[in-house]
Design a protein around this nucleic acid. Sequence first.
DNA 1: CGCCGTTATGCAATCGGTTACAAGAGCGAG
DNA 2: CTCGCTCTTGTAACCGATTGCATAACGGCG
Lengths: 370, 370
Amino acid sequence: MKSPGERASGAARRGAGRSGMAVPGVGLRDVAQAVGVSTATVSRAINRPEVVSAELRERIAAAIAELGWIPDGAARALTTGRSQTIGAVFPTLGLGDFPRAANAIQRHLLLQDYTLLLACSEYDPEQEFRQVRKFAERGVDGVILVGLAHHPELIPFLEQRKLPFISSFVYDPAHHGRCVGPDNHKALVRMTDYLADLGHVRFAVIAQETENNDRASARLAGIRDALAMRGLAVRPQHLAIGTWTIEEGRKLFAQVMDTDPRPTAIVCGNAPLAIGAILEATARGVRVPEDVSIVGYDDIEIMNHLPVPVTTVRVPGEEIGVRAARLILDLLMGREPDYPLESEAEIVLRASSGPPPGAAASPFHAQPEG
Amino acid sequence: MKSPGERASGAARRGAGRSGMAVPGVGLRDVAQAVGVSTATVSRAINRPEVVSAELRERIAAAIAELGWIPDGAARALTTGRSQTIGAVFPTLGLGDFPRAANAIQRHLLLQDYTLLLACSEYDPEQEFRQVRKFAERGVDGVILVGLAHHPELIPFLEQRKLPFISSFVYDPAHHGRCVGPDNHKALVRMTDYLADLGHVRFAVIAQETENNDRASARLAGIRDALAMRGLAVRPQHLAIGTWTIEEGRKLFAQVMDTDPRPTAIVCGNAPLAIGAILEATARGVRVPEDVSIVGYDDIEIMNHLPVPVTTVRVPGEEIGVRAARLILDLLMGREPDYPLESEAEIVLRASSGPPPGAAASPFHAQPEG
DNA sequence: CGCCGTTATGCAATCGGTTACAAGAGCGAG
DNA sequence: CTCGCTCTTGTAACCGATTGCATAACGGCG
């Protein structure tokens, strides 16, 4: 047996070599040996260059480049206790601003030398919890969730393990510092007010299932609360709940329009539903906005290009993604965030909304408040 | 100094505790101690349950649940040389079937206890390479790329490190076993043949930049080759290259239609371009397909719901995702894939394509070949 | 000329599991 | 009763980096 002092160099030590290593055969030891210094010095040259003499630093850098060495993340994670990794669980990547935000998170994390682990829950809290446990196992340093409603054991799990986490796509003052996004309730209050100010009184709502989806639920509540302020409410037959496909939007549009009295304004809870509603309307010869106003949520590109461009709530997905990344890192480092956590959900006015049928077109009807 | 034998239990040993650990204060040692066995036994109970007696296995499982222990991925990765992690670099998540495929990959990997690291290259080979290097640093066991065209150093880098990798969304017999997806060339040959069989001779193409994008480039080549077989070609003024937005689709549609002679068929290289073309056509009062046929690529939901439903190439994103996940794992394990690697790109006929203006409508014109 | 503070570097323990090898227990056969 | 085999479990080295502490080199100062 060799004494500890005379360990063979990495390259020689591992024969056929385990597969799966970052750089088969090249380890920190080999770099150290090549330069003629200890591994400690090489390690310091990487992590705290200022404590290593300039000349040595250069020789080490040269050797690293020469050997093509890449530090082993697992070993590093083991000693430092940080994996430089953040996990995010999104409901899906096929809806609204989620892909944009995911991309933004990933890009921003990379700038700070962090890597993103991404998973989808498909709106199922069980699955979300499973994904988060997997992340914990992989040793993520923090977790980005979507929304505030989760599996009952999820938050305790994260807290017990002291894993920092934030909620995105949602802002709630009660959770300040732990969430970034728009205030969904406020956004739909404003949208509803805008429509009501145009004179609408018969509102229909086409929205996603609100169970396990606090954002959808906040939007619905926003509509209801804004209407209630004016003594109005959504008739049961004007409330249609479904998924997030265009197909569904068409179906639900038909459903709420086949009622008496008909609604004069339809608020859609997500982009595909709004697209479906608009397309079904044009297909049926229902004029938008003359016969019925239709508004959506999420301003994806097509909203502005449909036969009738759609009035919608614009959620700044890119901004939310970047802030989510910043916030989780700040939380991790114990820094105080110095940027707003609430994103403004802007109401983008387009042709799909107008005064209700029969109302005198006011000369200045299309100005939303604030 | 303590002798090795009398190491304190994990919980007691670490005082204030490093942050960032999966389960602060609970380690394999604590589980072992709780059950009164060695760490080796606990480890075996997890990894090779069959060698541990049933009774003990149960007590260990109970203790693990009791203590809420989760194995530390970094430590495990360090010793085993595998991180149970796969990295994927997609061009973007905002186009076509990419989100669907990403989701499918992730879901399938999770079933096999693997975790997905996801990044986007934004069609920039430099960035793709950077992301892959980052993945190598994180110790991924394999890499899933999109397409066959990459940074010149990317493949050598992966090969040098013996990192298994595959290309997705592309099938090329020359790379059999290392790619999954449709044959882009073949798909567009078929689409072009279909249009030519309808009687079209003046083709326009609206497509993405082909530099750094071998799939777009294969599609373009498919169109050209199919036309050449009939002695036809795309006029320079009928070839418009752009990005992948609806806006761009509208612009390029206008561009190729403002020519003389006009094309009678327009082949679009991706979904947003096709959507833009269709919408611009209806906006301008150009009748589809009476005045011009328009076909697309990727069958995302909206293609079937536009004012004129779009004939398009359906790429099975879900299937590609699942197969990509399977293939990279098979490669990793040295297993032979027992499922097809080439995905059929189906041509979905819809209302946007028909005979060219002036042609006698054949009674049976809309049947594509095999 | 010797003492001491700096600065640069090396030594070796350590992170938390995994696994080769050793060792003990139990059992049937000779 | 002993030998040898199988079945379980324990011992301890090891993965590849990080980092507290020790040490060496150097220079300034009294």
